[in-house]
Amino acid sequence: MKGCEAYNHELDAYIDGELDPRTSELLQAHLPGCGACTGALGRRESLEHVLRSLPPVQPSPQFEARFWARVARAEEGPSWRERWFRVPRLAWVAGGAALAVGLALLVSLGDPALSAQDWAIVADAEGFDLVLEADPELLAALDVLESWRGSEEL
């Protein structure tokens, strides 16, 4: 013979029709003489009634059309942009790190940084290029400048 607490645990399975036949018989025999269990069963049945009467959430009218549009997109396959952004995050990190290392190597193995004076010479030379394109007669002047720069570097 079970007590009320044990039966209380069976009430949900009972109203769901999931209680085994033996326990169900015992519970049915217990209920008429037990106000507490009868009350608990009544409360559960009321709750069940309210739960079943909740208004269902309906799909929006465009649901089906949106679904088939989605199927069509999926069957087309991902665009180049989607494929690009599907690259795992780790690959992005690894690529960024490799790029940074590459740049660092390039800088360390390349020519030493130009001094302010070097930059001034480059700027002057570019200015002469522009002039030369406009006036080829100054070509000789550039030769003079180049020979002068060469002697400076030596």
Binding site: P56, Q58, P59, F63
Partner: peptide
């Protein structure tokens, strides 16, 4: 199948 199960599925997920 889609039309039969859409309402219960949307209802379940909405809750």
């Amino acid at each position: 199948l889609f039309r039969r199960y859409t309402p219960p599925l949307v209802n379940f997920l909405a809750r």
